[in-house]
């Protein structure tokens, strides 16, 4: 009962806050400090930022929301960039950081100058900044949870990992490992590194397949599902349930299989539009709302029934994306409280 009242109270607070949100931040300026723009994910991220913030500026929610990208993925360059953003009088800086630690000095300076710093994707560890982080471990675990529901008998799994030595690979892997430990009906019989690339994954899977018993499902990290499917096909083995990672080629293949034989799976990854979530979080903080320092980004999950719709909106060769609204940001913040 008490909890319900609390939720109700929070909802009322949020509703009240949103009523005057327009008024309070309309003369505030937000900057995006981005360290890299060299792949499709980052390009989609910048495009999402542009789309959402232009609308926000036109609506008078904020005065400006300018993106700045450093020419090379360099800590010192981004540090200098942030210092200049401080001088230009931005009220909030949204950061995709080149390094989790090495920008702490300048982030602290920004905080000391009264600037709200929200980091996302590439987060920073400086305590004064907000973090919109991706729980990659939970993402890995969610794959096993899906299998648990859809594959009651369990079976052998093949795991395709990402790029060795990168923290994201470790995090997703540990989530999958934890899921398997809790659900003994599943067993990982093989593990390869697909480097988040279809061609690498295809080669790696083709190499390990002859040594494997029957594989019921393939757990992946994104960008590797289509390659795995091709490897199974080339080896003449039955296609297992392959978890996808929201890439356009993966979704297209899934759609073809679904139409041909009712193939079932799911697809999960992080939407590049997370930059817009960080934008709204910054706006909420500027608006004077209480926002916890650590927030978790929801995954973008595609299921059997919304596959067609997602495929339609995904650019060729791109990644399924979604832009977040102020409402989404409020939900994320409420979830973290």
């Amino acid at each position: 009962m008490f909890k319900k009242t609390l939720i109700g109270a929070t909802a009322i607070c949020l509703a009240l806050a949103s009523a005057n949100a327009m008024a309070d931040t309309k003369d505030k300026k937000i900057a995006l400090s981005n360290n890299y723009a060299g792949n499709s994910w980052r390009q989609a991220m910048l495009k999402s930022w542009d789309k959402v913030t232009k609308q926000a500026v036109a609506d008078g929610v904020v005065a400006a929301a300018d993106p700045f990208t450093t020419s090379e993925n360099q800590v010192t360059e981004q540090a200098a960039q942030i210092q200049n953003l401080i001088l230009q009088g931005y009220n909030a800086i949204v950061v995709n950081a080149a390094s989790p630690d090495a920008l702490n000095g300048v982030i602290k300076q920004a905080c000391d100058a009264g600037i709200v710093v929200v980091s996302f994707d590439g987060i920073v560890t400086e305590p004064c900044a907000w973090r919109v982080a991706v729980d990659f471990k939970a993402m890995g675990k969610s794959e096993i949870e899906y299998l648990k529901e859809n594959m009651k008998d369990g079976g052998n799994l093949l795991e395709i990992r990402g790029l060795a030595g990168v923290s994201v690979d470790d995090a997703i892997h540990s989530g999958i490992e934890e899921g398997v430990k809790e659900n003994s009906q599943f067993k990982i019989v093989g593990s390869v590194h697909g480097d988040w690339a279809q061609d690498v994954a295809q080669k790696a899977v083709a190499g390990i397949l002859p040594s494997l018993p029957e594989v019921k499902a393939v757990v992946t990290q994104g960008g590797d599902g289509y390659g795995a499917a091709q490897a199974f096909k080339a080896a003449g083995r039955p296609t297992p349930l392959i978890i996808m990672g929201n890439r356009e080629d993966e979704l297209k293949w899934w759609k073809e299989q679904k139409d041909a034989n009712g193939y079932r799976t799911m697809s999960v990854s992080i939407a590049p539009g997370v930059s817009t979530l960080a934008f709204w979080v910054a706006q909420m903080i500027l608006d004077g709302q209480q926002v916890p320092k650590d927030l978790t980004v929801p995954f973008l999950r595609i299921d059997q029934d919304n596959l067609e719709k997602s495929l339609e909106t995904t650019e060729k060769g791109g990644v399924a994306n979604t832009e977040y609204s102020l409402e989404d940001a409020k939900k994320v913040v409420a979830g973290a409280k």
Partner: peptide
């Protein structure tokens, strides 16, 4: 002096130097 400013180290921190 660089680490005094950044407060944390990174192998690639000064590649452009």
């Amino acid at each position: 002096s660089l680490i005094g400013l950044t407060s944390a180290a990174d192998a690639h921190i000064a590649d452009r130097y």
